[in-house]
Design a binder for these strands. Structure first.
Lengths: 295, 295
DNA sequence: ATCGTGATGTGCACTCATGAACAGAATTAT
DNA sequence: ATAATTCTGTTCATGAGTGCACATCACGAT
């Protein structure tokens, strides 16, 4: 039994507040006849007289005063809401959800942390996972995708950076082997792969095609386990160049092939792309990418 | 900077609550195209995207969820308001303002007190005064008027009772005079009158016409002072029979003339006459009048 | 693969709420 | 007293908002 004529309540509110139909009509920007009709309709709807009509104006009955108080509170809340929402569009506050495949985590995490430091009003949520988080369902504000250019409707995609990926091994695995390893000897090496290598990543496609299955001696389901396996010396494996360079015990075994390069894409939803919050994170991510290419 | 489209907020609220435009349209009883237009209009008005649109429905953004919470509270308050007002029309609660000329106070006060005892939910305000309290301004729910039948528009008037008025004097004034005093001797007596006797009361009109002005030795501005003056023995004066009968020292000096009788009228405003509260007080007042004629 | 279902989105005809004009009433000013 | 002002309230023409029909798309089941 809820009321389905909020505008009529709003009209009655201004009539009760000002005391006259004409005054309310002027404030509301409508004709006074409209105000009268709203009041009549609302009174019929509620089954109660809200106003005493006389030639000098409308005076609220008890019911009318009750309604005025409720509507007063409503008007205040709506006004606050409006200024909150208006501000939200132009300021960088609230939640900011970024998603990517898990393997980009070591690259993005520092940049996101920096962004949060620079914008204390925002709480960053960085969600990774195998399943693609869909922007059109509002699951994330911005996604970093790898591989071929995404082609989803209502998504604006920008070329981002190129993930430098190369084949690494630990010194304990290599021993005193000469580097680089000749390309024709690579298939005989032991490898560390990824659990579900049906991913679009081109370097994993190369591994599946070039390396005999029995030589992929371990598969990890996430980046950390793969990284640990390589450092332990189980075999060769792909890693982000940026991440691998942080570990002294890892060495690059061959010059990266050109088709291993995985292009990265910045993807946002059309509706959110214009907002200041999204623009801010995009600018920050691009700036962070500049520093990657330098190192 | 307040929002002037409450109905659109209501529409957006249901969309956010149900997740689909079609569902909201069904609940709201409008076409789904209308819902879409409301959302578009509201988003333009607020300058913020409230929903992520996709083929499976609308999911609320942060802004949309914020709006939903505010609107949820509003809906609750309006629902409570509606049930409150609906109930108020059928129950006898709240304020009840009764007005009359001051001289009827001794008659009405006991009846009003009884009414309040019988209806604890109501707070009775009994206002008396020389100035006529106007029902059309909402100053009172019911008025008891004396004299000629009131003829104001939008007022429903009912014949009530006849105020029994007679001429009284104290035993100290009369001494051992024989009663009743012959009518032709009355003008030579001393009298107690009323301050503003231009009132419509017929017995005061008789006094002005029949008694020489110098014999009206005192005039009171309210009923109590007139009563005290008569009891002190200053002269003859008009009193309500019902009130005078309570004082042993007062005696009726002549048989009441028929044209002294002042008819009483129950007056209510059209808008309030149908309400249960007004009907209750009217019934109670009529019942009280029954007991007067008995005594 | 194909069909079915349930959703959004858009152009067009129409209805209903709105606005303009006028009448009436009461209060205030001259 | 009379005029002027400021309200309410009603009638009628019009336009904005609504409903309808159809197109389109995504997902799921057969």
């Amino acid at each position: 039994m809820s009321i389905d004529a909020w505008d009529e309540i709003r009209t009655a509110y201004h009539v009760a507040r000002l005391g006259t139909v004409s005054g309310a009509a002027e404030v509301l920007g409508v004709h006074h006849a409209t105000v009268i009709r709203h009041i009549d309709s609302l009174e019929k709807r509620l089954g109660t007289k809200l106003f005493q009509r006389h030639a000098r104006g409308y005076t609220a009955t008890e019911a009318g005063q009750d309604l005025m108080q409720v509507a007063q509170a409503t008007d205040d809340q709506f006004t606050q809401l409006a200024s909150r929402l208006k501000g939200r569009g132009d300021s960088v506050t609230g939640e900011l959800v970024v998603t990517s495949i898990e393997s980009l985590s070591p690259l993005l995490s520092p940049a996101l942390a920096e962004f949060q430091m620079a914008n204390p009003g925002v709480t960053v949520r960085y969600v990774t996972g195998d399943r693609v988080f869909r922007l059109e369902y509002g699951e994330a504000h911005v996604a970093i995708r790898a591989g071929n250019a995404p082609n989803e409707p209502d998504n604006v995609v920008q070329r981002y950076a190129t993930a430098q990926v190369a084949l690494y091994a630990s010194r304990s695995y290599l021993g005193d082997r000469a580097l680089p390893i000749p390309e024709e000897e690579l298939p005989q090496q032991k490898f560390v792969g990824y659990e579900n290598m049906d991913s679009r990543a081109p370097f994993y496609r190369w591994m599946e095609d070039s390396v005999p299955r029995q030589n992929i001696v371990m598969r990890g389901s996430d980046g950390r386990s793969v990284k640990h396996a390589i450092r332990t010396g189980i075999g060769l494996g792909f890693m982000q160049s940026w991440e691998a360079s942080q570990y002294d015990d890892l060495v690059q075994v061959v010059e990266p092939k050109s088709d291993w390069a995985a292009p990265l894409w910045l993807v946002t939803h059309v509706d959110l792309h214009r907002t200041a919050k999204v623009q801010a994170i995009l600018a920050h991510l691009k700036a962070a990418a500049e520093s990657w290419t330098l190192s």
